[in-house]
Computed example of a mutant assay.
Amino acid sequence: MTDARPLLIDARSAALPLSNEQLLEWGAGRQVFVSSLITDLPAERAAARTAIEAIGAQPVMFEDLGGQDVSADQAYLAGVHRSDVYVGVFTERYGVRLSNGYSATHAEFREAEADGTRIAIFTRGFDGAEMDGSQRDLIAGARNLYTTSSFTTADELEHRVGQRLREIAVEDLTPWVRIGRVVVRARELTSDGSTITVTAEVRSGQVHAELVQYRDRKSGSLPFVSPAEAKSVQIMAMSSSTQSAQAHLERITLREQARQGGVMRMAINNIGPDEYTRRALSDVLFGTNLLENIRFGMSEADPLAPIRGQHIDDSILRPVVRLLLGEYLLENGHAHTIDSFHLGPTHAGRRHLRLQWTPPNPYVNAPDAAPVVLEGELEAL
């Protein structure tokens, strides 16, 4: 089903703004964990609290936890578990090690990663020679996987935290989706189990023309991919309202098509299906040779072929890479859910990729399948 031709991406829609009402609606009910040394950074923690509350979200801070009949270690991590976003504020000191061998900040960061929580990291400008060695390692590891933001004052931190939360809100409220070979940013996405309706403001004339062709040619089966699902669909209806010479408001109704046949999951050469999937993806994406001379099905495919060589901007590249990898795993029956995805900034021509998914469970009464983690260095796209 996958169309391997280069994708047509509505890149101009990357900067779609949110109204204050939309931002406050997103923030309502969201919890944001603030992780830092408490005694060293009172002004910075207050600044982070102000930024979080300004969008209607609830800051989760150790100062607010009150008396609990659990250890401090457990209280820290429980706050991470119930939060939607982790905000880490890292400075020169590592902090006192807990019983698990990590400082509280480091333990919270690890827990957020394991949970697949959205992560935003801010580092204060400093002379690296004055930094604790363990803190230097923590920040270096974080920078390998996340784009960190620096600050010098509490006011600057407040601005940067607010800015990053707005970016996350935009990603959540206007997700990128794929229809056929076009990728657009959805202003609204609804599904009733048999039909999917996508409303998008399209700013690319080429993308608009491709969608019109799908409608007029009554194209048959097309791939549809969102951050949560991958399906075969057929366009039922499409209406387009021209807003300007370069902007079209599209409303596209798609009919979901039944999957043809089941997906076979079996061991190959004593390698289980989940491990085989992980090794095959590693060989394709990272250039490893984990399958050695074994070749079967997906080992020859490159899920990222449709975007290679396009030099896509970072603000678009991450969600599009996630779409393509999610499509590959979900459509081929290798994953039930995509649990977490992180694509780091470019270092020496490569990016660190970490992807976790939960395989499907074919039996109702069987234990839940263990998550699968794929991690390695991806050649810069």
Rank of each mutant, 00 (worst) to 15 (best):
Q260G: 11
A258V: 14
E210T: 06
I271G: 07
S204M: 07
R160T: 15
V170H: 13
A154Y: 05
R279Q: 05
I179Q: 03
H248G: 15
R181S: 12
V284I: 02
R178G: 13
N289H: 04
V212F: 00
L285K: 01
G162R: 05
V183K: 06
I168Q: 09
E229K: 13
A200S: 15
K218V: 13
K231Y: 13
R185W: 09
A230V: 06
R251D: 05
E171M: 11
E292V: 08
S219R: 08
V225F: 07
G162T: 06
G272P: 14
M266C: 06
Q243E: 13
V183H: 03
A169R: 12
E171C: 08
R164T: 10
S221N: 14
M264D: 05
S191R: 02
T253Y: 05
T174W: 11
P273N: 00
L249V: 09
L281M: 07
I294A: 10
S194L: 09
D216N: 12
E201A: 12
S241D: 15
I235M: 10
F286D: 06
I268D: 04
H159W: 03
D172R: 12
E158G: 11
F224Y: 15
I268M: 11
N269L: 11
L173C: 11
A200P: 06
H208W: 07
V202Q: 08
P227K: 00
H248Y: 14
G261H: 12
A280Y: 04
I235V: 15
V161N: 03
R259Y: 10
I268V: 13
L189D: 06
I179E: 04
T199P: 08
R265M: 00
A258P: 15
R181F: 08
V202Y: 07
A245H: 12
Q206L: 10
S232P: 15
A247C: 15
T277N: 04
S232Q: 14
P273Y: 00
Q257G: 11
A237L: 09
G220F: 02
E171R: 15
S282H: 03
A267K: 09
V183G: 07
A230R: 14
A258I: 15
E201G: 10
V182R: 07
Y214L: 10
L290R: 10
V183Q: 03
V263R: 04
I235P: 11
R278K: 00
E201S: 11
E171P: 15
A169L: 06
M266G: 05
G262K: 02
L157A: 04
V161R: 01
A200E: 04
L173S: 09
E210S: 13
A237K: 08
G205Q: 06
E171T: 14
Y214Q: 10
A230F: 09
W176N: 01
S219E: 13
Q163A: 11
D192E: 00
S282A: 03
I196N: 04
S226G: 03
V184D: 08
M266Q: 07
S219C: 13
K218H: 14
I196C: 08
A186N: 01
I252S: 01
E210F: 01
A247F: 11
D155Y: 02
E171A: 14
L290S: 05
